[in-house]
Design a protein around this nucleic acid. Structure first.
Length: 785
RNA sequence: GCCGGAGUGGCGGAAUGGUAGACGCGCACGACUCAAAAUCGUGUAUCGAAAGGUGUGAGAGUUCAAGUCUCUCCUCCGGCACCA
């Protein structure tokens, strides 16, 4: 017999222990079953621990994983930790302890918090990006990128955060500010490692079409990649050997060009300034260029600000279409990084050129468009440009993967594969230097490497005779490990390869990936890039890492603001689980609303789901081995099986919960509750509330876990109600209804409808002009009144 | 400015073009109780005494029938943005 009281604390602990000891959720690599790989974006284990918003996505995938397992799939649902990066490092600076200590502590805490929620993770596959056994392969991928010419050193000015004292990728800058700390970024020329993601721009764009991802995320990536088609045109410079190549998406407006503008950083300007005599207003130009250089990105790219610029006095560009001579300006509204850094100005057709022309009193020419042939005749070359920039991949900080690279004077020497991983050494001070060097540069013992100590193989024969080499002291950005971690879960302990070929083939790609939409143009682009690269070098056999993606809507605080310690609106899951139980919290978070939508937490709302589970608990006491359900409820059960199976697969857990409530309400009204049918209900509820269902299931005499039982299948013959309500409309308004057999013919329905008193009242003695009968649904009469 | 998504009771939200507001919260009344909590039951868009009317951001349209489809507009959220 079921014990009287529903004691969630006892029940949840009991089954969590049993599932762990029986390895209920361990995934096998070889199986006749079809595979299903479902993945959560792994968390960054901060010192704050989890708040109730974090597990929302994990609960949702846990539900799908459990359902799929019961449906006979070999399910891979792993979890791990992304632990390199600034928060751990800043904490280390503050406490002067190695970040690995804090990371270990935080990971332990996260795991504990996740465990009490009853997730079905296979912890034997846990990964941690800061584990040398893991980052050995992050470094290995970098070596391959280097080998294929996709990683290179660059000295171009990059985004620099003066507060974090590190260079940043374009993707780490939001509205001209450091994404981490909000400090306006500066441009700083410095040596850095860059990955040639732009080589993959076209594929990253084109392959979006075949992904089952939310349209909004695909669109964000399209915007980020920013493809535009246009032409490059050469403008000769009067009396000089150079020419200016401009990029335009509107080469047809070539006749309307009134001037040419170049970015302050353009090589042509630099060249002109080298010689004193070329420019009449040299001092003015020097001043303008210098001003542009010290501006932050925010100041520079503020579209609201007035156009500024300086004429390159005495310089004229020649329009390749008609030979017209036009002046040349240098202005900061032209960006050096995009296109060719030079633009042909057509004020008639471009707002910015129009604004500039007005300010500088330049003419506006309204001239006919030219056709494609004329463009080509003028020397136009059709090109495609992308806004996407190469990925600035080095950071001047301590807590990241060391680059597996050595410097031999000017030469780059890859660390031999045998010497991977290059382990991050312990340092005395984690403080960033701010000089463009990382704290690693201070550790002479680590930096200086005797070439004879390395394991050169034939293929990697040491390319230098020098005995002492210097290690690269920059580290990789936080995004490195997360760009490929999903592959490691397939084969987490392999020390011979990143992933075994057969295992990769079996697990293929992630079938379903769930996480925050804020990763749209960072993690989700980087991972796609690396995956395509790994495909190109034969490590993976799929073109895309994540087949289907769903984003989680945030859970906001009760005050509607983002949950944060700063606002004091953080709700701790441990407390909620203590009071209401993990099952109640799981059901509540899924029931709150549509999964991808942001929603405010409301602890009171938990009462409803707790009541629901209490009622299920009581229902179990009424289970009978004899008897049967009413026809009506039997049909409802089969409809519910069908609906839940569909809803859960696409994370519509809110409506799944609702239909389970409806079914349990119907069960309560039944005179007898047959065991088989109640067990079907339990199985449907099991993914949502794994503990209480397991307890009831075992109390009903089942020996094996409900979570490895078979998922119910709806009986087609029991899906249709024996009788249906047919409603009757007169001129589009509902005037009555009646019940009829499910197989009643159109003629029968029409006859009954016309005979109804409430219908006669509206139709009178007139003959309907039109009668529409939808069997099983309605009769609609059209009568001229 | 360009692109994507969304606007439904007091609240969270349901609704293959076919009875709008499922399910839950809250609220009201009732039962149980000395009383309260918990629990259970009934009710709960709105105007109207009723018959009936009106209602899914606003306005038009298509249709026997529109929350759902089409067009125009408004508001909110998200992405991109001096990107030529």
């Amino acid at each position: 017999m079921t014990p009287k009281k529903y004691d969630h604390g006892k029940i949840e602990k009991k089954w969590q222990k049993e599932w762990a000891s029986k390895k209920t959720y361990e995934t096998s690599d070889s199986s006749d079953k079809p595979k299903f790989y479902i993945l959560d974006m792994f968390p960054y284990p901060s010192g704050e621990g989890l708040h109730v918003g974090h597990p929302k996505g994990y609960i949702a995938t846990d539900i799908v994983a459990r359902m799929k397992r019961m449906q006979g799939f070999n399910v891979l649902h792993p979890m791990g930790f992304d632990a390199f990066g600034l928060p751990a490092e800043n904490y280390a600076i503050k406490t002067k302890t190695n970040p690995s200590i804090a990371v270990a502590k935080n990971v332990a805490r996260y795991k504990k918090q996740l465990e009490i929620l009853g997730f079905d993770y296979d912890w034997s596959r846990e990964v941690n990006t800061t584990d040398p056994k893991f980052y050995k392969w992050t470094q290995w991928i970098f070596l391959k990128l280097l080998e294929k010419g996709l990683a290179y050193e660059s000295y171009e000015p990059i985004n620099w955060c003066p507060s974090c004292k590190t260079g940043l990728a374009n993707e780490d800058v939001e509205d001209g500010k450091c994404e981490r700390c909000g400090t306006p970024v500066e441009k700083k020329p410095m040596r850095q490692w860059v990955l040639r993601i732009t080589d993959y721009a076209d594929r990253l764009l084109a392959d979006l079409d075949k992904l089952e991802w939310p349209e909004s995320i695909k669109e964000s990536q399209r915007n980020w990649i920013g493809r535009s088609e246009g032409a490059e045109l050469d403008f000769a410079i009067k009396g000089r050997a150079e020419k200016l190549t401009v990029f335009t998406t509107r080469p047809d407006t070539l006749f309307g060009v009134t001037y040419v503008v170049v970015a302050p950083e353009h090589a042509f300007v630099t060249e002109l300034l080298k010689h004193k005599e070329t420019l009449k207003n040299r001092d003015e130009v020097i001043k303008y260029v210098a001003q542009a250089r010290v501006m932050t990105q925010i100041e520079r790219t503020d579209a609201q600000k007035d156009k500024t610029g300086v004429k390159l006095d005495g310089i004229f560009a020649i329009n390749p279409a008609n030979g017209e001579e036009v002046p040349v300006y240098v202005a900061d509204y032209v960006l050096a990084e995009y296109g060719t850094g030079a633009v042909m100005a057509v004020p008639k057709h471009d707002e910015r050129d129009a604004a500039f022309s007005e300010k500088f009193n330049l003419p506006v020419l309204d001239r006919p468009f030219i056709d494609r042939t004329a463009v080509e005749k003028a020397g136009g070359k059709w090109v495609v440009k992308y806004k996407l920039k190469d990925w600035v991949f080095s950071r001047q900080r301590y807590w990241g993967e060391p680059f597996p690279v050595l410097h031999d004077g000017d030469k780059i020497v890859p660390v031999p594969e045998k010497d991977l991983p290059v382990e991050l050494p312990k340092v005395k001070s984690y403080e960033p230097t701010g000089t463009g060097e990382s704290p690693l540069a201070d550790i002479k013992k680590w930096v200086n490497v005797n070439a004879n100590d390395l394991h050169w193989t034939k293929g990697e024969k040491r390319p230098t005779e020098a005995r002492m080499l210097k290690r690269e002291t920059n580290t990789m950005p936080q995004w490195a490990g997360s760009s490929w971690y999903y592959l490691r879960y397939m084969d987490p302990k392999n020390n011979k390869a990143l992933v075994d070929g057969a295992k990769e083939k079996y697990w293929n790609q992630v079938d379903f990936y769930v996480g925050g939409a804020e990763h749209a143009t960072r993690h989700l682009i980087y991972a796609r890039f690396w995956h395509k690269f790994l495909y190109d070098i034969g490590v993976v056999t799929t073109l895309e890492p994540f087949k289907k993606l769903q984003s989680v809507g945030l859970i906001m605080g009760e005050d509607g603001r983002k949950m944060s310690k700063r606002f004091g609106n953080v709700v701790n899951p441990d407390e909620i689980v203590g009071t209401f139980g993990a099952d109640t919290m799981r059901v509540y978070e899924m029931f709150m609303g549509p999964f991808d939508q942001a929603i405010s937490w409301n602890t009171n709302g938990m009462i409803g789901t707790r009541r629901f589970l209490e009622r299920v608990w009581k229902l179990a006491e009424r289970v009978d081995t004899k008897g049967q359900l009413s026809k009506e409820t039997e049909t409802l059960l089969h409809k519910t099986i069908k609906k839940i199976s569909e809803d859960m697969a696409v994370l519509k857990h809110n409506t799944a919960v609702s239909s389970l409530m409806i079914l349990s309400n119907a069960f309560e009204k039944e005179a007898v509750l047959p065991k088989a049918e109640f067990e079907s209900f339990l199985k449907l509820l099991a993914p949502l509330a794994p503990h209480i269902t397991e307890e009831i299931w075992r109390n009903l005499g089942n020996k094996k876990s409900i979570h490895i039982s078979e998922w119910p299948v709806a009986d087609e013959s029991k899906l249709v109600d024996a009788t249906v309500t047919i409603m009757v409309q007169v001129n589009g308004k509902v005037r009555g209804s009646f019940t009829a057999g499910k197989d009643a013919t159109k003629e029968e329905l029409e006859k009954i409808a016309l005979g109804l008193d409430e219908v006669k009242k509206w139709v009178g003695d007139k003959t309907p002009d039109k009668i529409i009968v939808v069997p099983g649904k309605l009769v609609s009469l059209v009568v001229k009144l």
